[in-house]
């Protein structure tokens, strides 16, 4: 969510502070599933519940997990006794909370980019919101109804005014 003026003022007084949620909305979230290790950091930090732990688990995430982690140790142990490749995802009992494949629901996603900032595997990218270059070149603040200038461009042009913040940095 965009910070209020008072929020920016407070943030300016605290140089090391970071807002809990992003200052921009509308980034295009690109997930690289082949890099995801399923750690759940995105699910933990997602403000809208778009990234969350699902009901199934892909065993390949264990077998491909990097060494040095708990998943890597479990995957290496599983590899030693494996007789064949896992056919598909397995159901996870309700009390097993960690070993779940992350599901991503684009309908709920705000495009805040928090998941991309926190992802330890760099499996998520937050691309800048697409702005119309044909319309008014100077973006307006969202509080003044900024949708008018770029209404013809993109579907997620509702909050494109902090496009410089798309990489997740705070722009006061």
């Amino acid at each position: 969510m965009p910070l209020t003026n008072r929020g920016h003022e407070i943030l300016g007084r605290l140089p090391t502070a970071r807002p809990r949620t992003s200052s921009g909305i509308g980034c295009e979230i690109v997930r690289h599933e082949e890099l995801c290790v399923g750690c759940g950091t995105c699910a933990k930090n997602c403000p809208s519940g778009a990234s969350r732990r699902g009901d199934t688990f892909d065993v390949w995430q264990l077998l491909d997990a990097p060494a040095g982690s708990r998943r890597g140790a479990l995957g290496a142990a599983l590899r030693r006794i494996a007789r064949r490749e896992p056919a598909g995802p397995i159901e996870v009992p309700p009390r097993v909370t960690v070993y779940r494949t992350i599901v991503y629901d684009a309908e709920l996603c705000l495009g805040c980019g928090t998941c991309a900032r926190n992802c330890p595997a760099d499996a998520i990218e937050a691309l800048a919101p697409k702005l119309s270059m044909t319309g008014d070149a100077t973006p307006t603040l969202p509080t003044t109804g900024g949708g008018a200038a770029t209404s013809s461009a993109t579907p997620n042009a509702a909050a494109p005014t902090l496009a410089g913040a798309a990489s997740g940095e705070v722009t006061p």
Binding site: L62, L78, R84, I90
Partner: peptide
């Protein structure tokens, strides 16, 4: 539940 999970894990790799 963890034992059930491990059982499914073993089953998926053919053990």
């Amino acid at each position: 539940d963890r034992v059930a999970f491990v059982q499914r894990l073993l089953e998926s790799v053919g053990v």
